[in-house]
Design a protein around this nucleic acid. Structure first.
Length: 481
RNA sequence: GCUCCCAUCGUCUAGCCUGGUCUAGGACACCGCCUUUUCACGGCGGUAACAGGGGUUCAAAUCCCCUUGGGAGUACCA
């Protein structure tokens, strides 16, 4: 049977990276197995769900390049793909469970249950639902329902041990009494997660359920339902959690956690996939930089890691640089150009010039914020020097040779500008250097650092002979005067 | 409280299943050196970990037990 996996987010906010990683695992596994990647929207919580969230979710997956085989916008034969539209399935099987006495109507209000739980807590007893409505007679149920009394449907939890064979965790035991009778249908008639999940995974012919470890306790409930329905459960793989600095499950309060936020920070989709997949999975040969295509052939559930993983922005940053270097020059330019504000002078320059800029700085660029400094080096007219550079800078400035070079360069630049040049020809630059050496007898630190100071306003930086020819003459003139 | 899960450098991890080749390997970060008359890249090197205690065994990071620590769940959320 062909592998079918699903990513089943609830549209209640922007997609956070824990979910993104789950999506990636599912997608990669599907690809590696030649199977299907299905997206199912879990929107049974009408209050928290929103249509705009679903749209963003789908857009996020698209941005990542995770192609959906079946989903709300590309339905296959097992739809609908939104739980809010699958009501018939749920009521049908809820009724079946009711008929078979595997579920029952419960008339207890939330307040009553909370109160009874408190009482049991004081007595040190189990906090589960106490089974009060378990054995109401059919007549009583009918009477109370006909009388308009609200009721939920509870699943009657079997009193026995359960056992799960999890691909990443191995054998997991769930002892008898771990959970009480749980709600599968709300008073409003809306089904609840654990129930929908089973019905949908079954009806959508899902073969492997790959999800976060936080769902592990849910799995017993689901196993119970599978058994009651006499359906063979899928294979489960529970991935470790992603945690924040405090080692707790990653959530909004950990700062930057949504995919959108990382995208805004200029992380590439490849980086997201590459970095996230490595947070809980490893390549058999410990390769680190990988493309999505490579991952699609090599990913296996067996190499998933059990312990929770912590985010390391520094490594992710490095990885972004590595992924950037993997692109073709044209693609690199496109990415980098996208990082620069629309009204920046950079966009006015010719393609050839932009490529020169890129090749000069590519090694130093990992993220968007690396760019500012390099752009300033080319375009900023006012010199920027750090405070600790100040003493050396002043010392250099006071040198007689610096003054000589400054007036010479000012004259040269004006001459070039009058000739109509926009940039300094490479030969002109080397001409200046030889002139300073041979005629003015300036050499060593006063020569190189001095020229750098005059032309860039700084005392350290990249190769001047490459930098100067791509700096606009107007900028250089402003710096010299 | 109860149930379940987890535990190798600061971080991500390899190794653990199938004990010896592990004086524990890699990556990020950090620190040196080389190269570069400067920056970066690169190259070379360094600091740094098997949570603790008991077993089993000729031999344990690897198997078992306990302790400790961390996490998750315990909803008419998913």
């Amino acid at each position: 049977m062909s592998v079918r996996v699903r990513f089943a987010p609830s549209p209640t906010g922007s997609m956070h990276i824990g979910n993104v990683r789950t999506a990636i695992y599912n997608y990669l596994f599907a690809k590696a197995q030649g199977g299907e990647f299905i997206v199912r929207i879990e929107d049974t919580d009408l209050v928290r769900s929103g249509q705009e969230f679903e749209q963003n979710l789908l857009l996020d997956l698209k941005w990542l390049g995770l192609e959906i085989d079946e989903g709300p916008e590309t339905p296959g034969e097992y739809g609908p793909y939104r739980q809010s539209e699958r009501g018939d399935f749920y009521s049908k099987y809820a009724q079946q469970l009711l008929d078979h006495r595997q579920a029952f109507y419960c008339f207890c209000s939330e307040e009553e249950i909370a109160q009874r739980r408190e009482e049991r807590r004081e007595k040190g007893e189990s906090l589960h639902y106490d089974g009060r409505c378990r054995h109401l007679s059919d007549d009583e149920v009918k009477r109370r329902r006909d009388g308009g009394e609200g009721a939920v449907v509870r699943f009657l939890a079997p009193q026995k041990d359960f056992h799960l064979k999890d691909v990443v965790r191995g054998d997991v035991a769930f002892p008898d009494g771990m959970i009480g009778d749980f709600v599968i249908m709300r008073e409003s008639g809306m089904p609840v997660y654990n129930f929908c999940c089973v019905i949908d995974d079954w009806k959508m012919k899902i073969t492997h359920v790959i999800r976060g470890e936080d769902h592990l306790p849910n799995t017993v409930r689901q196993l119970m339902i599978y058994q009651a329905l006499e359906v063979t459960p899928p294979i489960f793989a529970h991935a470790s959690l992603l945690v924040g600095e405090d080692r707790q499950k990653l959530s909004k309060r950990h700062g930057v956690t949504s995919l959108a936020a990382f995208r805004d920070l200029s992380f590439l989709p490849q980086t997201m996939i590459n970095y996230l997949v490595l947070l809980g999975w490893s390549h058999p040969d410990e390769r680190v930089i990988m493309s999505k295509d490579e991952l699609e052939t090599i990913f296996t559930l067996e190499r998933m890691h059990k312990a929770p993983a912590l985010f390391d922005l520094a490594k992710m940053r490095w990885m972004n640089g590595q992924q950037l270097k993997l692109l073709s020059p044209e693609e690199q330019l496109k990415v980098v150009t996208g990082w620069i504000k629309a009204d920046h002078q950079f966009h006015q320059e010719k393609h050839q010039w932009q490529m020169s800029f890129l090749s000069l700085f590519l090694d130093k660029i990992e993220m968007e914020d690396d760019l500012t400094d390099h752009l300033d080096l080319i375009f900023a007219t006012a010199p920027v020097a750090s405070s600790e550079e100040q003493p050396e800078l002043e010392e250099l400035n006071a040198l007689e040779s610096t003054g000589q070079m400054r007036s010479y360069l000012a004259a040269e630049l004006s001459r070039l500008k009058q000739q109509g040049s926009e940039f300094v020809p490479v030969e002109a630059f080397s001409g200046w250097t030889s002139y300073f050496k041979q005629e003015l007898k300036i050499k060593g630190k006063p020569l190189f650092k001095g020229m750098r100071l005059i032309l860039t306003g700084r005392i350290s930086g990249g190769d001047l002979s490459a930098l100067v020819p791509i700096t606009p003459i107007d900028v250089l003139l402003a710096r010299v005067s």
